[in-house]
Structure formats: structure tokens, C-alpha cells
């Protein structure tokens, strides 16, 4: 489209958001990386060297010489960080799997529902997403507490004789992540299943294929794109999750989002927290790029 492609209007449409994202999304990462190479100082800002154009060229070169990878070396030497990364990935992985196991039957059931009901069901899945994340996590504290609602009801119907200790354990974190991210898993799987041509299943069944086999051979492979998208949408943010481990997890729970927060707010060690963030970003860069390619491909198809 030539007329639209060359006007000032169209240039502006591209340039304004582009520059905004460069300024407030990309450049901040460069700054994070640069601060991860500095050392802590008792000053404002609490790191050195601080670059300033007033120092002149030689001053800047001097400052560059002061930068070092010491913080990254420090991360490898202290087992705390390594364990925190590992345990974040483990917790996020287990939670993603649990979310998938719970979300798939729901999405499948929704896709099979009478056509007139589907918009309502879809709305009901999206609705909790609009209520505050913090509130949804907070709601679980009252449920999972030793004297909380879950234990009260289980005790009263006699399933258990002693309260279960769930709050402040990893189980509480799994529940929190599954609960908070469930809609992100349901929606892509549902949209993949909804588009599926049901006559394929009918054909398979007419040819004598048992329903379970038909599901694994036809339905599941066709919904795979939705499953992968859902897993990405849950796994990537869950690795860096802070609120859920902080409110539901115990003091012994190690998650990198929490470690980063503490390093920054309690220890006030900016360079080390910048290094922690850089490594976390490096860990997540592969799944993030994968997710972006998937999105871009989906756009191409839609065009």
C-alpha cells in the first residue's frame, strides 16, 4: 500500500512507539548490564564508577577500566544464587506441568460445549484475570493456613485428623502459580481446540479407532501449538515470580525473583542485583525468543 506507506502519518505511527520502547525497554537493559559490572559503593547512586560526560574522554576510559565481571564470578561462588536459579526453574517447571494438567480438561470441555455457551464460558475464564493478582494470591492465605478454611472443612468431614501444613511450603507456591496463571494456559489451548475440525474425530471413530487413541493421535497433536504457547506464558513469568513465593512460600523457599528483591531492597547491593537480573534474562532469553517467533508466525498466518 503505497499511499499509506510513505506519508508522515505512517512514519510517525512507527517511530513514536519504536522510540518509546527503545528508551524505556531496551536501553534500561543496557544500563542493568553496565551496572552489573560495577562495584558497590556507599554513595548516591550506590555503585561506582558513575559515568559522566563532565569527566571528559580520558575520565570515561578510566571508568571503563574499572568495570569488571567480579559480580558474575561472585554469583558462581556463592551456592545461594545457583540454588535459587535451579529451584526457580524447578518450581516453575512443576507448576507449568500442573497447570497444563488442570487446564487441558477445562479447555477441552469448553471447546466441546454447545456453541451458544462458548462466549459466556470464555468470559468466565477471562474474568478472574481482571481481578488483582495480589488479591488472588492473598485470598489463598486464608484458605491454606493451618487453621484456615481448607483444613477446617477437611477436619469437619473427617478426611484428616490433623491440619495439613500447606502454607509456607512449596505446595502453596504450586497452588498459587497454578491458580494465578490458569487462564493463560486455558485460553491458547481452547482457541486451538475450538478451531479443530471435528469431522476428523468422527472419521477416525468410523474407521474403528477407540476414543482414547483418537484423542492422542488427532486431537492432542492438533492442539500442540496452543499447549506450547500456554506453557511459555506460564513458565517464563513463573521463573521470576516474586509475589507468590513471598506471600505463600516459606522462609526456606528459594526463588530468584525473591532473592533479587531482597538483594536490592534489603541488602541494597545494586550491582549484584543487576548481575542476578542479567543472568536471569540470559536463562530466559531462549524461551522468550521462541515465544516471539511463535507469535510472529501466528501473525503471518493471520494476515
Amino acid at each position: 500500500m503505497k499511499a499509506l506507506g510513505s506519508s508522515i502519518f505512517s512514519r510517525l505511527v512507527i517511530i513514536v512507539p519504536y522510540v518509546w520502547l527503545l528508551l524505556f525497554f531496551l536501553i534500561p537493559f543496557v544500563i542493568v548490564f553496565r551496572i552489573s559490572l560495577s562495584t558497590t559503593a556507599i554513595a548516591q547512586p550506590p555503585y561506582e564508577p558513575v559515568f559522566s560526560l563532565a569527566d571528559g574522554l580520558s575520565g570515561i576510559i578510566d571508568n571503563i577500566r574499572q568495570l569488571s565481571f567480579d559480580n558474575f564470578v561472585w554469583l558462581t561462588e556463592d551456592a545461594l544464587y545457583f540454588n535459587a536459579y535451579l529451584s526457580s526453574i524447578k518450581i516453575a517447571g512443576i507448576s507449568t506441568l500442573l497447570t497444563l494438567l488442570i487446564a487441558y480438561p477445562i479447555a477441552y470441555g469448553m471447546a466441546q460445549a454447545p456453541r451458544t455457551w462458548r462466549p459466556t464460558l470464555l468470559m468466565l475464564v477471562i474474568l478472574p484475570f481482571w481481578t488483582s493478582f495480589l488479591i488472588r494470591v492473598y485470598a489463598w492465605i486464608a484458605i491454606l493456613k493451618p487453621e484456615g478454611l481448607l483444613n477446617q472443612s477437611l477436619l469437619s468431614i473427617g478426611v484428616i485428623s490433623e491440619p495439613l501444613i500447606i502454607l509456607n511450603t512449596n505446595w502453596a507456591i504450586y497452588i498459587g502459580i497454578v491458580y494465578s496463571y490458569l487462564p493463560f494456559m486455558i485460553l491458547p489451548i481452547y482457541s486451538a481446540l475450538e478451531k479443530m475440525d471435528h469431522s476428523l474425530i468422527e472419521a477416525a471413530q468410523d474407521l474403528g479407532c477407540p476414543p482414547m487413541t483418537a484423542f492422542w493421535k488427532i486431537t492432542f497433536p492438533l492442539s500442540l501449538a496452543g499447549v506450547v504457547a500456554g506453557c511459555m506464558l506460564v513458565f517464563i513469568p513463573a521463573v521470576g515470580e516474586f509475589v507468590i513465593p513471598d506471600l505463600l512460600g516459606g522462609s526456606q523457599t528459594l526463588m530468584i525473583g525473591k532473592t533479587l528483591w531482597n538483594e536490592f531492597n534489603s541488602n541494597r547491593d545494586w550491582p549484584v542485583s543487576a548481575a542476578v537480573a542479567t543472568v536471569l534474562l540470559l536463562i530466559l532469553v531462549v524461551p522468550i525468543v521462541f515465544f516471539q517467533n511463535m507469535q510472529a508466525k501466528a501473525d503471518e498466518k493471520g494476515r
Binding site: I14, P17, Y18, L21, L22, F24, F25, L26, I27, P28, F29, I31, V32, I35, M232, L233, I236, P237, V239, G240, E241, F242, G257, L260, W261, F264, W270, S273, A274, A277, L280, L281, L284, I288, V289, F291, Q292, Q295, A296
Partner: peptide, 25 residues
């Protein structure tokens, strides 16, 4: 490519990273 990357990445980026990087900026 870079532009579409910058649009999609914040959707999944852990909030601690976005928050910290903006603060440092």
C-alpha cells in the same frame, strides 16, 4: 524484527527484571 521483539517480550518478562531495569534507568 527488533520492534516486534520489544512489543512481545514485556508480555512474558518477569516483573522484577522490568522493574529493576526501569529503576536503574
Amino acid at each position: 524484527m527488533l520492534f516486534s521483539g520489544m512489543v512481545y517480550a514485556p508480555l512474558v518478562m518477569p516483573e522484577v527484571i522490568t522493574g529493576l531495569s526501569l529503576l536503574l534507568l
